[in-house]
């Protein structure tokens, strides 16, 4: 099978940030469907989890708090005795607006959630991730986006971080930076982009989640990958032709 499991005898376990909504929720659902034990985190409390949140552990922790990374790592250590085979750092935030409409505090918050928190998490999880895979969820905006300069900067930084880390950790932890195109999670509306025709073209969270997981599980492919229309479309078509492979 061309889709390979990450498990190396240590079970299918995945730590997933931003599991409470959007793409992370779709990732959590897909992981559970594939038989993973998921350790999900998000900002909202348990009581506000969506109705279709899958059957998995959940820790509410705000990534803008200084002790977020050590808290998540400690929780992870309590839940998982052995090594952690997979961590997906997916939590993210951003606003669709020009620099002139930003505030210093909100700018710092987006950088912290999308970039600094992931640096802190990578460091805190490093001992437990030995032999495993670290997936960083970026965005196609990492190359720059006139409509959302702060978000683009945070994702650009994440890309550069993953690029260096993949090389440093080669042979011990597999690092992948995956850059999704626009996903229909409501993030962009909440981010302030007006709803229009273009929204109907956004990728489905489930299709993106499936593609991301298969990319993370594959030992092949470059460290940094774009997962947008062409890749997701091609991947879903391939799965259909292969008869729902991978489950």
């Amino acid at each position: 099978m061309w889709i390979r499991g990450v498990m190396t005898g240590s079970g299918k376990i995945c730590l997933l940030t931003g599991a409470s909504h959007g793409l992370g929720l779709a990732l959590a659902q897909e992981l559970v469907a594939r038989g993973y034990q998921v350790l999900g985190t998000g900002r909202r409390p348990h009581a506000e989890l969506p109705a279709d949140f899958p059957d998995c552990a959940y820790l509410p922790v705000d990534l803008t708090q200084a002790d977020a990374a050590p808290r998540i790592a400690a929780w992870c250590a309590r839940q998982v005795a052995g090594p952690l085979p997979l961590a997906i750092l997916n939590a993210g935030a951003g606003r669709y607006r020009p620099l002139s409409d930003e505030t210093a505090a909100e700018m710092a918050e987006v950088l912290q959630i999308n970039f600094d928190a992931n640096v802190q998490l990578a460091q805190a999880l490093h001992p437990k991730l030995q032999g495993g895979t670290l997936g960083l969820i970026g965005s196609v905006a990492h190359k720059g986006a006139a409509g959302m300069p702060v978000y683009a900067a945070s994702k650009g930084a994440l890309d550069g971080f993953g690029r260096a880390l993949a090389e440093e950790w080669r042979g011990t932890v597999r690092v992948r930076v995956l850059h999704p195109g626009p996903v229909a999670t409501g993030m962009s509306e909440r981010a302030g982009r007006p709803r229009d025709m273009i929204d109907s073209l956004f990728l489905s969270p489930r299709a993106v989640a499936m593609t991301l997981l298969d990319r993370l599980n594959s030992t092949r492919g470059p460290d940094r990958q774009v997962v947008s229309f062409a890749q997701v479309g091609g991947h879903m078509l391939w799965r259909k032709l292969a008869g729902g492979a991978g489950r």
Binding site: G144, A145, A146, A153, G156, F161, R163
Partner: peptide, 11 residues
């Protein structure tokens, strides 16, 4: 790289 993406966005 973050700075580069920021500069590209502001251009």
């Amino acid at each position: 790289d973050g700075l580069a993406a920021f500069a590209r966005s502001l251009r």
